[in-house]
Design a protein around this nucleic acid. Structure first.
Lengths: 246, 246
DNA sequence: GTTTTTGGTTGACGTGGGTCAACGGGCATG
DNA sequence: CATGCCCGTTGACCCACGTCAACCAAAAAC
């Protein structure tokens, strides 16, 4: 079993009750008293540099991670070298849920930029879920949301055309940036065209062409990783009407 | 909110401790004493006839379901009528996990044949998870397994060719029939070519042609829904070597 | 038992997106 | 400030799969 990049723990304990991500993260909807108990649960923070992995497929499962700063991708590799990006994660989102089932991680989590996560030891989480009413429910909701999200991706991969996929992707990113207090119209993507393509089941050239097409049509303005959504409604329309779709 | 098909409850309480599906179902790995407590949790059974729905997207979420007999598909519909089958479920598998996140179901669960499920009220499950050590862990594992499974489907949809997808599908079905005490070599599919196609992101004609191709190549023998795997190793090989894949 | 419907197979043809290749700009490194 | 690599763009070509259509078998309905 491959070792991950050396763990970088700084002494600081994270405090959920102080964190400005509560509304997006695991603690959402929990009472103040419950929240203070959560502070016990969350262990040290861990920094992960760009391109380094938080965990790799096969690693023993010990903790889940809440993203405090930065962003990640998760991917699965086939023996023949094919890679599939299964998701992009932003601040407040939870990583590592795949590991519970077999007590080993089944995918790789790689930082798209220098990032920091809160380490939540799984055995402690289990234990505290018995005690703290709201924590169990919240945790279940986080897992369930991941399942629903995955179904959305399956819909996208199974029955949408290239431009529909990219439109759905851009609108999703926009909505998530917005939920974090950033502009919904303008943002910087953290991933390459190849990573977007892998996620959307397309080749990077196809992603690039779709970007160019959207720009020609006046729907967006792109320059490298910088994206402006000029006509979000137009992108939404793209998704709804199948043009003679597959 | 559309009403589901009228609920058919027969008075019989299910008893996990008596059920021959324990090894596949939620109770897996739980102690005898824990198992007897589970019997309290599991409410009445419910029968669902072929083509009828157990729940529909939008229905309020109240319970999860363990399949006691029969099989189901889950699907998501887009406004424009496109359908994506997100999974096929067999005995012992759990349905309804998607509903936890928003307290409403996000997909439809439809019986592929006359079936029966155990109804597990979610509020009771939450409560009992606080008390019964093994139940919480088991439930988390079930959810996590669903996430891992979904990642596998994403891999399939995002980076495999038509024949690879069908080969993976057949091997998966084989393995699951086998886990339930049926032959791994020979089984009857419960779903149509169109449903398989929707699941695999292919048109039914493509599915049909891939079946025929496998038969020509001596890998399988198909007649309608009856499938015999003559050379499972050949199917496995198909998945591993990309032939110049997309 | 007959009719109708549904599901599956196969062929001919079209096309969306993959493949291959050339090129250019940004950004990191020294 | 120079160098090199990575990333993104674009064009030309091609092929896997979708589309359309005909046909047949099995199962359901009458």
């Amino acid at each position: 079993m491959r070792a991950s990049v050396p763990i970088t723990v700084n002494g600081l304990k994270s405090a959920c009750s102080q964190c400005n991500l509560v509304e997006l993260c695991l603690p959402f909807g929990m009472s103040d008293s419950e929240l203070s108990r959560l502070d016990e649960l969350v262990g040290a923070r861990r920094k992960v540099k760009r391109q380094q992995s938080l965990y790799r497929a096969g690693d023993a499962f010990e903790a889940i991670y809440a993203i405090r700063a930065g962003s990640f991708k998760t991917d699965v590799l086939l023996e023949d070298g094919r890679e599939q990006v299964t998701g992009f994660q932003m601040t407040g989102e939870i990583l590592g849920l795949d590991g519970i089932s077999t007590e080993a991680h089944s995918c790789n989590a790689i930082a798209l930029e220098d990032s920091e996560v809160c380490v939540i030891a799984y055995d402690k989480l289990e234990q505290m879920s018995h005690e703290v009413e709201g924590l169990q429910l919240q945790f279940h909701k986080v897992m369930s949301r991941e399942i629903v999200r995955d179904h959305g991706v399956m819909m996208l991969l199974g029955s949408m055309r290239a431009e529909e996929r990219l439109a759905a992707f851009l609108l999703n990113m926009s909505q998530r940036f917005n939920a974090r207090g950033f502009s919904a119209q303008e943002f910087n993507l953290r991933m390459t065209r190849e990573e977007i393509g892998s996620y959307l089941g397309l080749k990077l050239e196809t992603v690039s062409r779709a970007f160019s097409r959207f720009q020609e049509d006046g729907l967006i303005a792109v320059q490298q990783k910088h994206v402006m959504l000029l006509e979000p409604a137009g992108l939404k329309k793209l998704i709804q009407h199948q043009h003679g779709a597959r």
